[in-house]
Design a binder for these strands. Structure first.
Lengths: 211, 211, 211, 211
DNA sequence: TATGAATGAGTATTCATTCAT
DNA sequence: GATGAATGAATACTCATTCAT
């Protein structure tokens, strides 16, 4: 509703502008994922998006900005989806399940983005200097915190064991990330979400637990 | 004993040569970890190691080679340490414990290297063309397989639940990697190995299991 | 007429582009002739042509390409001039006279190019690997063949003695080349073409012949 | 006789030294001829001659020096052979014949050297700055002058036509040089000297002369 | 004496970014 | 608004030459 309205209120000019901006981002996402940040040149982005180089620069101030915007917006979307899923879930257990499910679904639809996302956490070193770079790391931490809070909630409800919540959040995130990473590398056609039950079983009861 | 002997057998010249080579690798490791592969220039490596640029090239044919050799040799060392630890352990459970302990110890001592190691898996896209790049990926897979085998062993001994071993290996590796990653980012002085019990508890009994 | 038309049909942009390209070639020709291929740097070519380095690279893919294009285009021009001259001549004798006259005139106007041209035949060893390098050698052989054919024609018309035509062509080419070479080295202001009668007399009647 | 004596007078040390120096020159000659001056590295010369790099520098002050010494000494030899041949000949005609015959023989035995020799005349541009480089050009001019003198002699004896001697010398040298060049390129096994009669016939009577 | 490891000065080439049109 | 030609700053790599051994 909001989006529609906001679009309607925009003139055709502005709408076209946004559409082109998004188009460039999509092209850049594909190229960055395929060849990596450094191996992708602005000329390639321009050519692949069928814009002139200078046009690209009217939308994004620099190559860095394209890259960071990419991360920024998609992570926002992911966080938003996670938030929605949590709100619809009741118990901590269900919430965790919901988060993982959303992540699997999301990256299943955004393979290209995952490559960039996974890679990014290292580039942080360099990018953290940039304002936008800092914000992305904050968002990543935000995701971790959300998870940690849920775990804490679960602990106080006697649902989960007394583990340090932040550290558990890290472990769980790492599990999921590695799982997705492997799936993308394998280039299998299997539905990533089909693995959810196993992951959850492992997550809740471990290698040995629950008979 | 063996190493000492083999060193004694080498001439002084050869010993010095190896020492210098190693010195360059160490410098490069620090720089790569600090600034990333692309941001580190050969001139910087030369200056920081107090060698002339061309001298660096007498030890390593290219910048790539330095990077890959770095990975190559340290991963070899890690795999060797893991192998030793496994041999000394009896049960699958102890073996997994040993692997994780070794990893935590290793990266506690090799913070710089971890940044490179973690980053590498993504750069694979580009590096896989290189012979040396392929070998490193093989080693990574080797590590996963070892873990998977132990899990399989545990399953057939009724020690672990019937999970798909390879996928469990991925999950566990991801957990550990994320944990180390977070620890390095936090720049805490806490002993990484002190976290072992928590990790193991989570790993074997999950969030909910074994009261 | 044709050229004018074809130029008129080109847009201003394309015309300018060609002009700049030619300008770079001219500058490179002067520098290569003065200092030789290896002693001439891309930076010098850029500076002397008052373009940025990268601009040079937009016109020519590499330093080699500049050099080879230079040879390529000028040799084409020379061959074209020779062809025209031959067509206007009647007898084999007149044709040979025409060829030599054209060559003398051409290099009189293209002193710089001669140095490059003469030198090239030796560098062939290295350049033959390049596609463009091979083509230039073919053109050189083409020039020799043309001369050889005319000699053959002259022989069958009873005009010339029964000499092996190809070898005569080589001898005559060598004569001319050495003559031009010496003239350029001497840096005399005498018209090179003024020497034509002597050369022809020697060529047709030898040191001793025709009283 | 002289050489033997002078050798005998030298100590073993000095004899060995000369022999090594010559060995290096021979190796360099082969390499320069194969790959050209710039493409040949000092390291290659060292390796191919089985000396250490610094040892090469004890014999020759620089790469340039090797190259120039090479030219220097072989040209000296050629000039000496030509001188001898001239002294044994009586008439100008016989002298010219002798010169050409000596050249053909010499380069037939020194193919490698010819490549360097032919190429050199262009490198002059760069090398003339060097003292040794100037001397080589002087020697080349000396050769031309000798030939010109003989022609002059022939003219005053009524043997040859009244041509400008220097220019004739240039034409003849060019002929011979081109002929040898073509022969080397063709890599034929035919004896180069077998072509002498044709060359002389052309040289003395031209394409048309003396039926 | 002989060496080869060490070196720095030099060079071709690339690419993000900016204007002139 | 849109373009792409122009650019300079940056960088991996080479090679003749020199010393320390």
């Amino acid at each position: 509703m909001e989006n529609l309205n906001s679009k309607d209120l925009l003139g055709r000019r502005e709408q076209e502008r946004r559409w082109r901006r998004q188009y460039i981002l999509n092209v850049a996402e594909r190229l960055f994922a395929q060849k990596g940040y450094h191996q992708t040149t602005m000329a390639e982005i321009a050519k692949a998006s069928e814009f002139g180089m200078a046009t690209i620069y009217q939308f994004f101030k620099s190559k860095d900005k394209i890259y960071l915007t990419l991360l920024h917006e998609k992570i926002d979307l992911l966080l938003k989806l996670i938030k929605q899923a949590i709100e619809e879930a009741q118990t901590p257990l269900e919430k965790i399940k919901a988060i993982i499910q959303v992540k699997l679904k999301f990256f299943q639809k955004n393979r290209d983005f995952f490559r960039i996302y996974a890679l990014h956490r290292q580039n942080i070193v360099v990018l953290l200097r940039e304002e936008l770079g800092k914000k992305i790391d904050e968002k990543y931490q935000e995701g971790l915190s959300t998870l940690a809070q849920i775990i804490e909630e679960g602990i106080s409800q006697g649902e989960f064991k007394r583990f340090p919540p932040k550290e558990m959040a890290v472990l769980i995130s790492g599990m999921i990330q590695a799982f997705i990473h492997e799936w993308i590398k394998s280039e299998e056609e299997v539905q990533l979400t089909s693995k959810l039950p196993i992951i959850l079983d492992f997550l809740f009861y471990g290698l040995k637990g629950k008979i």
